[in-house]
């Protein structure tokens, strides 16, 4: 066995992840190679040093968490730049339902399809309808569930969500309704007056 191969097995040995055959081959190599014995010793030392760095969580961590989640749910406001976009878009609503928004100052963030889906892959489970309902409630906004990227939403500012999915800020309520009418997307709305609108892209 070459020392390079042994390296992988030394690491596996520390994690108890080697097969019986691998372990036997490693021990045979170690018995004849002092350099690899040093590596094993050094890895053990480093692992121990890292493990020893552990600390107790701050005493107030739990209280802080509980305090934050017990606060009455505030209506979430859009980030400032989203507000600017929404305001800018409200002015042009009615002129065209598929406004082209390429100006840099009002479209600070866009995602390509592949970016959007690479975000998706890092999420364990997404229940799109439950998530859409939650966003709709929390942000007092109409939310359309979109399962593929449509050119209509591509250029709108977006944010990636921790829970999974990419949320596109639509110009208005009508844009969401239009997605529903054109593509049959499900839409969730807290009330008919809400003019904040999103498209939630999920795979």
């Amino acid at each position: 066995m070459k020392c390079e191969e042994a390296l992988l097995l030394i690491s596996g040995h520390l994690d108890h992840a080697n097969t019986i055959e691998e372990e036997a081959a490693l021990q045979a190599h170690l018995s004849t190679c002092s350099a690899c014995r040093d590596v094993l010793q050094a890895f053990e030392y480093a692992d121990q040093g890292i493990a020893d760095l552990q600390e107790k969580a701050p005493e107030d961590l739990c209280d802080r968490v509980m305090e934050q989640i017990s606060q009455p749910k505030k209506k979430k406001h859009l980030r400032p730049w989203l507000g600017v976009v929404a305001a800018a878009l409200l002015l042009v609503v009615g002129v065209s339902a598929t406004v082209d928004l390429q100006e840099e100052n009002i479209v600070p963030q866009t995602a390509t399809v592949s970016e959007a889906y690479s975000v998706q892959r890092s999420v364990v489970q997404v229940d799109a309808d439950a998530l859409a309902q939650q966003i709709s409630r929390e942000r007092d906004a109409v939310v359309a569930v979109v399962r593929e990227m449509y050119y209509e939403i591509e250029t709108y500012p977006c944010e990636t969500l921790e829970e999974g999915g990419v949320l596109y800020a639509l110009p208005d309520h009508n844009a969401a309704v239009l997605l529903h009418e054109t593509y049959g997307c499900a839409i969730y709305e807290p009330n008919e007056n809400s003019d904040t609108a999103y498209a939630l892209l999920v795979p």
Binding site: L61, V65, Q68, I69, D127, A130, Q134, E163, G164
Partner: peptide, 10 residues
């Protein structure tokens, strides 16, 4: 933790 609480239904 706050995100876990919010996202627990997922």
């Amino acid at each position: 933790f706050v995100k876990a609480w919010r996202g627990l239904r997922f």
